[in-house]
């Protein structure tokens, strides 16, 4: 007996468009999560407003970078939730949808929904940040890089969890450590000088440092600019390729 189903050869990222749409519909119902996606950023901005209002421009661009960074947390939660609770990833992987399209589609769907609170923060920041076209372009570019890095890392992390309850502790440590402890919401120059090179190789603080430099808040040396931009570019590409390959590998697990 033969099947009438015609299986066309699989190509990378097959089904991406449809899975972006699926995730968009799923996330579009998460109004509560969308509304609360800015809580930490809001709290930190309030702290800066009350304790040191002079740092508000830096804090606002930091809040935008941090918001893009925490989208990786959404990807982590969503991927783990679909796999552990719903087991719907088995269903998706049994379809012609390619695993890397599943990962990227989820990340893009989440981005399209959660970008609106970030746009709102950017709109409010117009009151305190003197944007120029080049500064806005730079902020857009580094934020996109941070998002892709974070979404890739979030997806890879999600495959290691066996229960949803454990995710919170690990993810809050990861995202607060690299997004709050390192100089994202405050100038790089307030960070200990010996540790500043480490901050420049970590994507969120590297992105923030580049924007702070363009903003004129800090004077980043040429070497510093190369270190930050080079690290960001390399880590983003490495993590994205790694996540796509990891998605393929983990999809084959029983």
């Amino acid at each position: 007996m033969t099947s009438d189903v015609v299986l066309s050869p699989s190509r990378p990222f097959r089904g991406l468009r449809w899975f972006v749409f699926t995730e968009l519909l799923v996330q579009g119902h998460e109004t509560l999560a969308m509304a609360t996606s800015m809580v930490v950023q809001g709290v930190l901005l309030v702290f800066v407003w009350i304790l040191n209002p002079g740092l508000l421009p830096v804090a606002f661009v930091g809040a935008i970078v941090f918001s893009m960074f925490t989208m990786g947390n959404r990807v982590l939660n969503e991927a783990a939730y679909l796999r552990i609770d719903h087991r719907s990833n088995d269903l998706y992987f049994a379809s012609p949808l390619q695993p890397e399209a599943y990962f990227l589609g989820m990340a893009l769907g989440i981005l399209l929904v959660y970008i609106w609170p970030v746009v709102a923060i950017a709109a409010v920041s117009l009151w305190v940040v003197a944007y120029t076209p080049s500064l806005a372009l730079l902020l857009f570019a580094v934020s996109a890089g941070v998002w892709l890095f974070s979404a890739s890392v979030g997806y890879i992390f999600s495959t290691f969890f066996r229960e949803n309850r454990a995710i919170w502790a690990y993810s809050s440590l990861f995202f607060n450590l690299f997004g709050v402890l390192f100089p994202v919401f405050y100038p790089l120059t307030l960070f200990p000088p010996a540790l500043q090179p480490i901050a420049l190789v970590l994507p969120p603080s590297a992105a923030a440092a580049l924007v702070q430099s363009a903003l004129g808040t800090i004077a980043l040396s040429t070497n510093g600019v190369w270190l930050a931009s080079g690290s960001l570019a390399v880590e983003v590409m490495a993590c994205f390729v790694g996540a796509a390959l990891w998605a393929r590998r983990t999809a084959r697990e029983p």
Binding site: L51, L55, A166, A169, Y170, L173, L181
Partner: peptide, 24 residues
């Protein structure tokens, strides 16, 4: 889950460090 014990220890310090940098 060791991170469950580590997270409540480290999280207040992360915010404390941030606040110590931006406040008197």
């Amino acid at each position: 889950n060791p991170a469950v014990a580590i997270a409540p220890i480290l999280l207040p310090f992360i915010f404390l460090y941030f606040l110590s940098l931006i406040s008197p």
